[in-house]
Amino acid sequence: MAVATAKKWRLSKRETQNLITGLLFVSPWLLGFLLWTLYPLISSAYYSFTRYDLVRPPIWIGLDNFREIFTDDPRFWTVVYNTFYYVGISVPLGVVVAFLMASLLNTKLVLRSTFRAIFYIPSIVPAVCSAMVWLFIYNNQYGVINNLLRAAGQPIIPFLSSVEWAKPSLIVISLWAQGTAVVIFLAALQDVPRSLYEAATVDGANALHRFWHITIPMCSPIILYNLVMSLIGAFQTFLMPYLLTNGGPMASTEFYAMNLYRQAFEFFRMGKACALAWIMAIVVAILTAILFRTSGRWVFYGGGER
């Protein structure tokens, strides 16, 4: 170690050789990072201060885009409300449901891998196929649920065409298509050492105690991971509302990413779209940072492996 510290600034011939080879191997990614990540990020920050319609060159307008977004665009606050409604319900609910489903699958269960497959497959079929099926299921006239209601003489539920129902209907779809989280949780649950449960049982802990004091703490790093990933994902929800409701009715399902897409590719307001993107990125970054900051209180990193 002492030798290594002394030589900190002078690499041996072997080390220099390794550095060059290593950099050569990762150079595709490094170049791609500069071209497809760093440069877009910087240019997007620049465009957010301009007016740009792709035809004429961008014109510097300072903070005008941001001022318009915050004070002069009534749609923006509707979209923010819609997005927080959707994220605030679908993310916590999704993580809890996925964790409970994984816990069920982790018990002694006949046909466990069949059940796992049933829960997982909805998350891998093409989103456009899922969209078509749900469009059909939720249909006011021919949808299966409304047909059953009609057969029972009940009033129909306007799943996608009423302001009250549209958002919950989309949240149901997000809960249906989250098999990935279930599979990740299941793998985490299977890694919890069995000896812990045995010891707790000997000490007289019941199933609920074991779940609360062993299962959840031992899986907390993965809970945090799934929470962060689904938070980032939920903020960018685009396809389902785009295909099922196209933002309607009365903009009640126009979420943030959709509004951004519209600004860019329907109204060709590239500058405003970039400003919107940066606002979202900053909000998501703050929320993720809060999650990580507060995670120290509830996330348990055992075994010192991390």
């Binding site: 990614w29 990072f33 497809w36 990540t37 440069y39 877009p40 990020l41 240019s43 997007s44 465009y47 740009y52 792709l54 962060v228 980032i232 903020f235 960018q236 943030y256 990413a257 951004l260 897409y261 860019a264 590719f265 590239m270 779209a273 970039c274 993107a277 940066w278 979202m280 990125a281 998501v284 993720t288």
Partner: peptide
Amino acid sequence: CIGTMLIPYTVTMVPLFII
């Protein structure tokens, strides 16, 4: 490299289109 996975795609979507 793995940190870039946390960048929302919506941020690079528009500048990439311009490129």
